[in-house]
Nucleic acid binder design. Structure first.
Lengths: 139, 139
DNA sequence: CTAACTGCAAACGTTTTGCAACTTT
DNA sequence: AAAGTTGCAAAACGTTTGCAGTTAG
């Protein structure tokens, strides 16, 4: 499950270029962390993780880069907590389980949840995505 | 669908009292707007709506009141947009359809969507809720 | 009378922006 | 060279908090 999927870990620069994202040292650094494994990072998490090594990356660049990655579909926003956004490097179809006590986010594979019927969409609209969050807490 | 359900529109003070919420002029005013119909308000929406009439209600009180109402289960938070929280006066089981272009939120009745299978919950955890957001955009 | 609530303004944490210097193409 | 990106600090945004004064029970 938490394996690296189709992200070219060896040629991140080329990968970013192929995604309409100009590769810079900072963006490659951020991509390296983001695509090392499937995980859910807040902007702050990434800001800290990225600054344990050179090159230094500013907060503005972390936000700009995450914005660019989301815009180009390299990562996805996860809305489970009202106080901050999480970024998910797993872009394959899946859902989330959120632990209200610990704040932990876990993936739910498409085989573990089944949506049988969808509502009729408004006229002139198409489906963008279906997001399911299963919230759990201690018994 | 958007009918007033079981909220006692006539005796809001008594209703609030029965929900462990001390009824004050401000809270009754907020409740009046919130429970007039099933709708999705941001804190700012409510702050504006509540201040078209007496008594004046401060932003702090709007937030405190919404917090109290959520804590006591009178309303529910809806997370569809990363930039702000929406508050839903419909507490019956239902899901949401979110229009990415307009920001509009619509209810999806339990008859319009079917979740067939849920993942196994972590040990020692119980289900709190399952939130589904169907996101649509223009074709 | 006491506990709870209110308004205000200040503080908070997250995210965005303006701009001059610097890379990428 | 032109276009795009970076860092910094400042600003903006939604939301929370501290506190003196007010209201509910």
């Amino acid at each position: 499950m938490d394996e690296l999927s189709d992200k070219p870990f060896s040629d991140l620069a080329g990968f970013l270029r192929s995604c309409n994202v100009t590769p810079t040292a900072q963006r490659i650094q951020i991509a390296r962390i983001l695509f090392a494994k499937n995980a859910h990072y807040s902007a702050e998490d990434l800001y800290i993780a990225v600054n344990t090594t050179e090159p230094r990356v500013s907060k503005a660049t972390v936000y700009n880069t995450l914005g660019a990655f989301v815009r180009e579909g390299l990562i996805k926003e996860v809305l489970v907590d009202s106080s901050k956004v999480f970024y998910d490097s797993n872009t394959t179809p899946h859902q989330h389980l959120y632990d209200l006590d610990t704040g932990e986010i876990q993936d739910i594979g498409p085989d573990q949840i089944t949506l049988q019927q969808l509502p009729m969409l408004p006229a002139g609209k198409c489906l963008d995505s279906v997001e399911v969050v299963v919230k759990v807490r201690k018994q």
